[in-house]
């Protein structure tokens, strides 16, 4: 024996060669959960009430795909407009200028404080409130004027309702992200004589993205489902198209399964995309530990 010993009965053994105990409890739990899941899948698959052949038949039907494209289109447009307005609101809300910050606060207060469904119905029925929409000097002459009914179609009402509501939520998400960036970063951009806009674009927003993206992913997924509310103003989105079918055929559950599967497919694709975007904005974090180890080796202190 070359090792030194602590006590006569105990050698100093290298822990690298130690045996792992077998975790019977965990394996059993895994097996149990898998069996239950497989059984549940089996029951669902062979339950005739789900009407899987009907699901397969309608899954790629033209009316359903049209509804799907409306859902996706509305989501993308409302999300882009909502994020753009939300970014402006967030910056206005954080501004030192009381006018800007209170206007932004008022907007956020109103659009977060009222149900989206009510907002959509208001937009759709705007013509009953304001038959004419005009650009005019306050208390002065009218410059341009439109008939509200010509402007507000189901499509424009849906886009206006969804994106303004989304803007209010995105404003708070973006503001949270901007607040999460270290104060020293703002100071550095100031000291280097960067303009506010450039500092936001190049330094602050890219760092804020790390905390903006996860809640934005949530918002996007909620938005996909929130678009189903536009069926009340006669927009034929995915859910509306499915309902149109089962109102004729009475195959309620199979048709809802068509919608459910499509919603899950879109959400899964978005989750994968979100993962890629998160990795991109975490690039300064990546590999910090292993490279640091190299640094230490290169420079013996």
């Amino acid at each position: 024996m070359t090792e030194r010993t602590i006590s006569p009965s105990m050698d100093l053994r290298d822990v690298a060669n130690a045996h792992q105990p077998i975790e019977w409890g965990r394996w059993l739990l895994w097996a149990f959960v898998l069996v239950v899941a497989a059984n549940f899948a089996w029951i669902v698959a062979w339950n005739p009430n789900f009407g899987w052949p009907i699901v397969a038949e309608w899954f790629t039907a033209e009316s359903i795909l049209k509804g799907l494209s409306v859902t996706l289109g509305l989501t993308v447009v409302a999300m882009i407009i909502g994020t753009a307005i939300g970014l402006m609101l967030a910056i206005a809300r954080m501004s030192n200028d009381t006018l800007f910050s209170s206007l932004a606060g008022l907007f956020i207060w109103f659009f977060r404080g009222t149900p989206l469904l009510v907002q959509l119905i208001f937009w759709y029925n705007l013509s009953t409130l304001f038959p004419q929409i005009s650009i005019a000097v306050p208390f002065g002459p009218t410059l341009v004027s439109w008939n509200t009914n010509d402007l507000i179609t189901p499509m424009t009402a849906a886009i206006a309702g969804l994106s303004l509501n989304e803007a209010a939520y995105m404003a708070e998400i973006i503001r949270g992200g901007l607040l999460s960036v270290d104060k020293g970063q703002v100071e550095a951009t100031d000291a280097f004589g960067m303009t506010r806009g450039r500092a936001l674009r190049r330094i602050i927003i890219p760092q804020a993205m790390r905390s903006i993206i996860p809640p934005t992913g949530n918002q996007l997924i909620s938005m996909i489902k929130a678009t189903s509310l536009v069926s009340v103003i006669a927009m034929a989105d995915l859910l509306y198209s499915v309902q149109a079918v089962y109102n004729r055929t009475f195959e309620v559950i199979p048709m809802l399964m068509v919608a459910v599967i499509w919603y899950l497919v879109i959400t899964s694709i978005l989750n994968v995309g979100q993962g890629f975007i998160e990795r991109y904005y975490a690039r300064g974090e990546r590999g910090a530990t292993d490279v640091r180890a190299n640094v230490r080796m290169e420079e013996p202190a």
């Binding site: 100071e187 550095a188 000291a191 280097f192 004589g193 303009t195 330094i203 760092q207 300064g284």
Partner: peptide, 25 residues
């Protein structure tokens, strides 16, 4: 104005206690 102050600062370099390097670059 803020913009004019930014221009004045451009001839002065500054090094901070906490470095304040841009971590994403």
């Amino acid at each position: 104005s803020d913009r004019a102050i930014a221009v004045q600062r451009r001839k002065i370099g500054m090094v901070f206690q906490q470095f304040n390097l841009y971590p994403h670059m």
